[in-house]
Simulated scan of single mutants.
Amino acid sequence: MPREITAYSNPLIKRVRNLRDKRHRRDEGLFLAEGLRILTEARETGRLPQFLFYARESAQHPLVRALIADVESAGGEAIETVPDILSKLSGKDNPQAVVGVFAEFTRTLDSLDRTSADIWLVAERLRDPGNLGTILRTGDAVGAGGLILIGDCVDPFSVEAVRASMGALFTVPVVQCD
């Protein structure tokens, strides 16, 4: 049975809100993803959030119900809340119907099977999260084996980069290296 949180002062709301900051994401090993499309894409790749926050009004949508069921069956927690709290979590005035908290999934250069694809994307010192999202979506569209980020690049798990990827973060492997 999903629990309900409607208070801004709830410790979990404060903890999740802090994930918008890189330092807290690194400390926790968690990141935020928002929107039904992105969370459905993640679900289709086998990645489920540890926490799923959803608006009370969206609870009857079939995709939201499927997410709730899958998250709970995988041992995660589904939390019903109000749009104002979703707005606080996402940092947007017009929040999406769902916000998920995922474990970061990092890969190393050595873990990539370079023979698995004909196309690999490489970016050096990529700074803009919107550009990262565009590159990930393009890589997804052309069947790239992954994206290799070299040097001081934008955090692929930032809220802005995840949003810009429109779910491609879950389908295109990303490696960060020097």
Results as ranks from 00 to 15, higher is better:
52 L>W: 06
33 A>V: 02
50 Q>A: 14
171 T>A: 14
37 R>L: 13
30 L>T: 06
116 S>A: 15
114 R>L: 15
29 G>Q: 09
135 I>E: 08
45 T>K: 10
122 V>M: 11
20 R>A: 15
76 G>R: 01
126 L>Q: 06
175 V>Y: 01
135 I>P: 03
156 P>N: 03
130 G>Y: 03
66 A>H: 12
5 I>Q: 06
22 K>A: 12
9 S>F: 02
175 V>H: 08
86 L>V: 04
156 P>L: 01
66 A>L: 09
158 S>E: 15
37 R>W: 11
121 L>Y: 05
107 R>H: 14
86 L>E: 00
16 V>I: 15
146 G>V: 08
80 E>M: 15
163 R>C: 02
6 T>S: 12
40 T>W: 05
60 Q>F: 02
8 Y>D: 14
143 G>L: 13
150 I>T: 02
42 A>H: 01
104 E>A: 12
13 I>E: 05
144 A>M: 06
49 P>T: 02
163 R>V: 06
16 V>T: 13
139 G>V: 06
129 P>E: 05
30 L>Q: 10
84 D>G: 14
114 R>P: 05
85 I>Q: 06
139 G>W: 01
49 P>R: 01
11 P>G: 11
75 G>F: 02
84 D>W: 11
165 S>Q: 08
123 A>R: 00
54 Y>M: 10
62 P>I: 03
12 L>F: 04
36 L>D: 06
67 L>E: 07
145 G>A: 13
175 V>W: 02
52 L>F: 05
39 L>P: 03
122 V>R: 07
83 P>A: 07
64 V>P: 07
42 A>C: 05
72 E>G: 04
55 A>I: 06
97 A>Y: 00
118 D>N: 14
102 F>K: 03
24 H>I: 01
97 A>N: 07
5 I>D: 04
3 R>F: 10
79 I>T: 08
8 Y>G: 09
34 E>C: 04
106 T>Q: 12
33 A>M: 10
3 R>V: 13
156 P>G: 02
87 S>H: 08
16 V>Q: 04
98 V>R: 05
20 R>Y: 09
69 A>C: 09
110 D>M: 05
38 I>G: 07
27 D>F: 02
91 G>R: 12
112 L>G: 04
135 I>V: 15
110 D>R: 14
122 V>L: 13
92 K>C: 09
175 V>N: 12
85 I>P: 04
149 L>P: 05
127 R>K: 13
12 L>S: 00
59 A>T: 05
